[in-house]
């Protein structure tokens, strides 16, 4: 049964690879546009055995990890402060919305002027990209908590800290997770784009560097690695937390 299920996930990819190969051979597409699947496999084996892929992937994962931690540290408390106070929310909401419209990558030229072609530049861009959705969604989550929850706890004698711990934090958690997922979607892309321009390692650097030498095989290995890593991070880290909180509390499709 398990095997059958896995086969059903793999089958579409097998069909896709067959299609890709058929186009490559049938239409005589030049190697500078598209390479055949075996060439990608060879490049994959080469990049893995020489430790190149691991090195570039590690750089990307390290940066996104650090950025996620910092963004969480900044975004969640800020989101709480804004969400729990209606004056702060009124003041900051349009401001945050505005900055949400300016993608992190748009600040990249300025960041390069300030920090040069360094990891700091990439880190700043990714943190900026991640922080805004996290703050925003934390704020939305806190504000969506029914006032009665707070009132009920007050009449049970709860103080401010207790209300934050027992009501605001768990109440806003699903929304924080949604914000984090969205932020990671934007952040991972900002990371790749920033790495392409900063050229200091990372999978973005790998695929953009391969472009310079028309190494289509390397580009495609890099793309597949980027996709797989994102799915692994999303499915293994973020989604379990999401389904645990949402399903357990019955907040999904009430």
């Amino acid at each position: 049964m398990r095997l059958l299920r896995e086969l059903r996930i793999l089958l579409p990819f097998i069909v896709l690879i067959a299609l890709w190969w058929a186009i490559k051979v049938g239409a005589q597409v030049s190697d500078t546009m598209l390479v055949a699947p075996p060439a990608v496999w060879d490049a994959f084996v080469h990049l893995v055995t020489h430790g190149i892929l691991a090195e570039y992937a590690a750089s990307s994962l390290y940066l996104i990890g650090v950025a996620a931690l910092i963004s969480f540290g900044i975004g969640v408390p800020l989101g709480f402060a804004v969400g729990a106070n209606r004056y702060a929310a009124r003041a900051l909401e349009p401001f945050l919305r505005f900055f949400q419209g300016i993608s992190g990558i748009a600040w990249l030229p300025l960041a390069i002027l300030w920090f040069g072609f360094t990891h700091t530049t990439t880190l700043v861009i990714v943190i900026y990209t991640l922080v805004v959705p996290i703050v925003f969604n934390t704020m939305v989550g806190v504000r969506a908590i029914p006032e009665n929850y707070v009132l009920a706890l007050q009449s049970l004698g709860a103080g401010r800290l207790r209300i934050v711990r027992d009501v605001y934090l768990p109440g806003a958690l699903p929304s924080i997770v949604v914000g984090t997922r969205l932020g990671m979607g934007y952040g991972w892309r900002a990371l790749i784009a920033s790495e392409m321009l900063v050229r200091q390692g990372g999978l973005g650097d790998l695929i953009f560097g391969a472009r310079t030498f028309n190494q289509i095989d390397r580009i495609m290995v890099g793309m597949i690695a980027i996709g797989c890593l994102y799915i692994v991070v999303d499915r293994l880290l973020v989604q379990p937390v999401e389904s645990m909180t949402l399903a357990r509390w019955g907040l999904l499709r009430q």
């Binding site: 500078t32 546009m33 990558i105 892309r189 790749i192 784009a193 392409m196 695929i207 953009f208 391969a210 472009r211 028309n214 289509i216 580009i219 495609m220 890099g222 793309m223 597949i224 980027i226 996709g227 797989c228 994102y230 799915i231 999303d234």
Partner: peptide, 14 residues
């Protein structure tokens, strides 16, 4: 998972 900018190096050749 790879939508958007990730395609740039490949499709710039297309």
């Amino acid at each position: 998972a790879i939508s958007g900018i990730v395609w740039l190096p490949l499709v710039i050749g297309w």
